[in-house]
Write a protein that binds this DNA or RNA. Structure first.
Lengths: 231, 231
DNA sequence: ACCTGAACACCGTTCAAGT
DNA sequence: ACCTGAACACCGTTCAAGT
């Protein structure tokens, strides 16, 4: 074997701190988007940032912590602009938040599975809940009803997201355009026309409707029930 | 080494069909309940039913198929009794279905994660959707609104379940009693009193309330919005 | 403190082989 | 058709060691 010069320049252990928590989360998110929930592995992240697998444990205690941080960062990217604007009608503000959350999270479909697995109890998650409670208090709901209403709204938004992403079955990549999703859902069902006529008909009826419109329809029915007077 | 008699009685490959699909699902469910979502592995299932890991592939093509079958069986166990009773008021029937689904699924908390990952498009899932659409049609909703309402109800129920189970953070075992869950949720938050006063207050306000009551409150607000006349 | 190689105890899945 | 052992390409995590 010839004299190996590269052996001396080869990466040696030692403090370098070329990485940051953000770098790791960036890598995790990229893997998530490219390869689905399973692709965001510690080993995959390490490979992507060019480091040994166990080096990740210098930045996060375990994989759950990475996932939590990822979800938190995602929630932190939610734009509070219109939601926080007190000059807007409260329904417009709630709708804006609902749409922001939906677009932010469904931009990374695989993250929804992580969301459901985790606690969603980090600072950014709590901040969102806090702002929502403030708004509901402004509307005139007494604390107990505001609490119940916030829970209901959260559950509905959460569930809609899960239904939307269920379409993918964990397949990697971004969500296809809404029209395509609606068409696919319908096509899958047509085989079942005999046994589930109403389900198929329902897919037909709302076929022209993008799923965001269905999402907003339900949201407003819930709001109707919560504050019927239309304060 | 002495003469090994057991070597001849040792299990040999060959057709025996001592197993059934049901046996495999039973094992998967038991592992799920005992050890959480990760415990329901192909290898774990195989070990529990006393077979080599790859023998499972005689019954199911892959792990996803096992999970799908598990979810389908869970939905098949939902009791349609009161929900199917036409003599009952429609709200009572919807509530009965909502409670049945909730109790059935939260009896196996780890299954919720599987539910979110999968399609929930099997025969039993479609049957539930079909019956719900029938009922909404009986109430007098036109097809398009019935479709939207079914979607909204499904999303809400789904999301509530996810929130309920998020409490566990994937820890194995059954859900603790509701009172305990409410107390734990509150205890976790008290550390944050300064930054999230309303969120903490909300946890206090509804602390005496079991989460099923919160679930039903939201359900009825949604129903109020869907059919305000109270038909 | 930050990183390494090596190892441990796992995964899902495939393949060739036995009955 | 149903099962086996062995293997492949993965996991998350830990440990001892290097700088």
């Amino acid at each position: 074997v010839e004299h190996d010069v590269t052996a001396q320049t080869r990466v040696r252990p030692g403090p370098r701190r070329t990485l940051s928590e953000e770098d790791i989360l960036d890598a995790a998110m990229a893997l998530l988007d490219e390869g689905g929930a399973n692709a965001a592995s510690i080993r995959g992240i390490a490979a992507r940032v060019g480091v040994a697998p166990n080096a990740v444990y210098t930045y996060f205690p375990n994989k759950a912590a990475v996932v939590d941080a990822l979800v938190e960062r995602l929630l932190g990217d939610v734009d509070h602009g219109m939601f926080a604007d007190p000059t807007q009608p409260w329904r417009v503000r709630v709708e804006a938040l609902a749409l922001e959350l939906r677009s932010q999270i469904s931009a990374h479909p695989a993250a929804v599975q992580l969301l459901v697995g985790g606690q969603v109890g980090g600072p950014n998650a709590l901040t969102l809940n806090e702002r929502l409670l403030e708004l509901l208090a402004e509307v005139g709901l007494e604390p107990a009803d505001a609490a119940r209403a916030a829970y209901a709204l959260l559950a509905y938004g959460f569930g809609s997201l899960a239904l939307e992403v269920a379409y993918l079955r964990g397949a990697p990549g971004p969500l296809p355009p809404e029209a395509e999703r609606v068409a696919t859902r319908r096509a899958r069902l047509t085989a079942e026309t005999g046994r589930f006529p109403r389900t198929v008909a329902a897919a037909d009826t709302v076929a022209g409707e993008i799923s965001t419109d269905q999402y907003l329809w339900g949201l407003h029915r819930l709001l109707d029930g919560i504050a019927p007077a239309g304060a």
